[in-house]
Write a protein that binds this DNA or RNA. Structure first.
Lengths: 235, 235
DNA sequence: TGCTGTGAAAGAGTTCACAGCG
DNA sequence: CGCTGTGAACTCTTTCACAGCA
């Protein structure tokens, strides 16, 4: 399984950079809507909540799309980042598990906005099957494989209870899905070549609790640390 | 610059480790429920989805809680990790924005389970105010400051539309909240000392799309691409 | 013997600081 | 002159490999 084909250009964009491109894209979209035509690394970085050196380094992995002495053309950069992220094509997404979370996801504007289209909703509960949500019919989980193949779904969002997640995961992988976004609080095991991203609400809270606890500790002459963790934006 | 005060113990746990402790905790909890008394780094790592070297290194930052030749005592390790994460105390959490997502969060079992207690729900919509969700009354956003102080809320979850997020953020910080979990798709700017963690659904999808696109580049017979609906969005 | 705990090496990501282009 | 693009230094994280204890 070799996967380092030396293609035309070094397309090896660092993972950390990939994770920030959507942030830049969002900031740029906002600017475009406000009619901003050009932006400096300093200003874009501020809007995205990172520092300018990092932003420039990130963008440099895509190519030289800026103009020295001037900055970046907003529309052009939007296009380049979109293309890099694969958002110039249309991705069909299925959501499995239509509880409150699944509903929230189905209705979430950000999904549809850019390159993504919710193409199918599934649930195991007969009372939910048949509901109309965000213009879609909720289908029975028995239809999972057939519908995924018929509609060309390539990304599956799992919003089921933890106990059901692995089974759903196995089933969608069996019909060729290789990108999964997992909201169930469980570790999914998948074969090589399948990407799983996890969003875990309680883990985020626990990380906050850790830092919150420390703040309390630091009364009177404690460790100096105050540091920031991720997005420490201050003027 | 150097802050390596030789306090009682080196409490400087790497951020990457902190982010994984909740994972270990969850795996351990599952084992405890199944009656497992002792676990090796190999087995625990497998259950948590990491490799054993990383797990041992992570745990070594907490102290020497394992037994060579044997492994870790499950209950004892649960206690130590919980304590380190600050989960042996009770954290009052408020959720602002009771749409589908806010509802999902309010009902999410994982919140309550361990150290966290949803203590207040807020919304600006008069039709939602007064609703009973997960045993709580939804209160009007005007009550935000008063209720936070009265109930000792220390962590605030923002699940409002993006446009409202910064304002809510400023308001809760003004009454002393320093830990925020933000689901709104916007960058919050906060003063130093305030921790913001961000969960962004569309960013996760975009990262998946990036990798999915690459898979397609590689081989030509892979994913089924939906050719229809070629309507390119911007530019 | 079997497993943890950990130095040391390797790798990834970030920041610095400035060359060089518009 | 202003701002991008980038080598170089630095810091953080992961992995290796094995010493050392139960």
């Amino acid at each position: 399984m070799t996967r380092r084909l030396p293609q035309s250009r070094d397309r090896g964009i660092p993972e950390a950079t990939v994770a920030r491109l959507p942030l830049y894209l969002r900031a740029l979209t906002g600017m475009a809507e406000r009619g901003v035509a050009t932006v400096s690394s300093e200003d874009l970085a501020l809007a995205a909540g990172v520092n300018s050196a990092k932003l420039r380094k990130d963008l440099s992995h895509l190519g030289s799309y800026g103009t020295r002495g001037v900055g970046y053309d907003v529309e052009y950069l939007i296009y380049q980042i979109s293309r890099e992220l694969g958002l110039t094509q249309d991705w069909a997404v299925a959501i499995v598990g239509i509880g409150n979370l699944g509903r929230a996801l189905a209705n979430y504007g950000g999904f549809v906005s850019r390159g993504f289209r919710v193409a199918a909703l599934f649930d195991a509960n007969p009372e939910v099957v048949g509901d109309h949500i965000a213009g879609l019919n909720v289908e029975h989980i028995d239809e999972l494989e057939a519908v995924i193949e018929r509609r060309g779904v390539s990304i599956v969002v799992i919003a089921t209870p933890a106990a059901a997640a692995q089974q759903i995961c196995d089933r969608v992988i069996a019909v060729g899905v290789t990108s999964i976004l997992n909201f169930a609080p469980t570790v999914l095991s998948v074969p090589e070549g399948v990407d799983v991203r996890k969003v875990d609400l309680s883990i985020e809270l626990q990380i906050l609790a850790f830092h919150e606890q420390r703040k309390g500790d630091r009364e009177s002459g404690g460790p100096v640390m105050a540091e920031e963790l991720q997005q420490g934006a201050s003027a």
